[in-house]
């Protein structure tokens, strides 16, 4: 405990990591419920690979701040993927798979050909699994992350009721005059933003975990949309905090530690769900 307090007060990068980690965990869990329910989680997965490809391109071109390039590219891909997903004539999931695997491969290829770094596989590994990049955040990145997270949370609260209506029954919402296309677009853009942010935290391969685990865990125990949303937000924040602290104390990779905590907590919730469900009967 003393060691923890010492680390926190001495090293600003640990504080940054905690702030950013908690915010990202919060944002991704808020939309996670909608994504899981709308069967959009595969889009999140695909987008994270796109973000990896974009990151590779940014590194090769030599853009100082990767996020300025990855963000727009990922947003555009999110919108495109959503379009193809809605068009029933093209197989939505096939398109997602194509784009995601394609950008993964191209990203690695580009990094391999053009990289000036001596430790290529280390670089790739850290982009995929996030290893230590969250501990090397610049002040600018921290502020960008804080600002974007606030935007995401505010948007989510403002549109909470609309998002529920569109998620629960899109046809009814459309028939009664809710602009469901607009909200789908909004959801897609916000996912893209979250994914690019979360890449710093857990790396592109593990983002889906951050989106899916809180929602699925909360759904084991709670039965209304509101309680599930609130529970998954708390779940995600607590797990992220625990994960980061553990990884700082024991020197484990941040991303996979957070996901490991998520998995443990999921089984806990699963057991609670079974126990509570059994008692209700």
């Amino acid at each position: 405990m003393n060691e923890l307090i010492y680390t926190l007060t001495t090293y600003s990068f640990v504080r940054y990591a905690l702030i950013v980690g908690v915010l990202i965990a919060l944002c991704s869990s808020l939309l996670g419920v909608t994504l899981v329910l709308k069967r959009f989680s595969f889009i999140g997965d695909g987008l994270s690979h796109v973000a990896f490809g974009a990151m590779a391109v940014a590194t090769v071109i030599g853009i100082a701040d990767n996020m300025l390039f990855t963000m727009p590219v990922t947003i555009i891909c999110a919108v495109l993927l959503l379009r193809t997903g809605q068009n029933t004539k093209i197989k939505g999931d096939a398109a997602v798979a194509m784009i995601s695997v394609g950008s993964l491969a191209l990203g690695y290829l580009l990094m391999n050909i053009f990289s000036t770094s001596s430790n290529l596989s280390g670089d790739v590994c850290s982009t995929l699994f996030g290893s230590t990049s969250i501990l090397t955040l610049s002040v600018f990145e921290v502020w960008l992350c804080v600002a974007l997270s606030i935007v995401v949370v505010v948007l989510f609260i403002l549109f909470y009721n609309k998002i529920f209506a569109v998620t629960f029954d899109e046809n009814f919402a459309k028939a009664t005059g809710v602009h469901s296309e607009f909200y789908n677009l909004l959801i897609a853009v916000v996912i893209a933003v979250i994914i690019v942010l979360a890449m710093n935290l857990v790396g592109s391969l593990l983002i889906s975990a951050l989106v899916i685990f809180p929602a699925l865990s909360a759904m084991r125990v709670f039965k209304s949309f509101k309680s599930v949303t609130i529970c998954s937000a708390c779940f995600s924040v607590v797990c992220a905090l625990l994960g980061i602290i553990i990884s700082v104390l024991f020197g484990t990779p941040v991303g996979s530690t957070i996901v490991a905590v998520d998995i443990v907590a999921f089984f806990l919730f699963w057991l609670i769900g079974i126990f509570a469900g059994g008692k209700a009967k």
Binding site: N161, F164, A165, F168, F172, T176, K223, K226
Partner: peptide, 16 residues
């Protein structure tokens, strides 16, 4: 597995 209470669903009719 959609978690939604009856009240939430009825309210969503007012959304538009």
């Amino acid at each position: 597995d959609f978690p939604a209470s009856v009240f939430e669903i009825v309210l969503s009719g007012l959304c538009s």
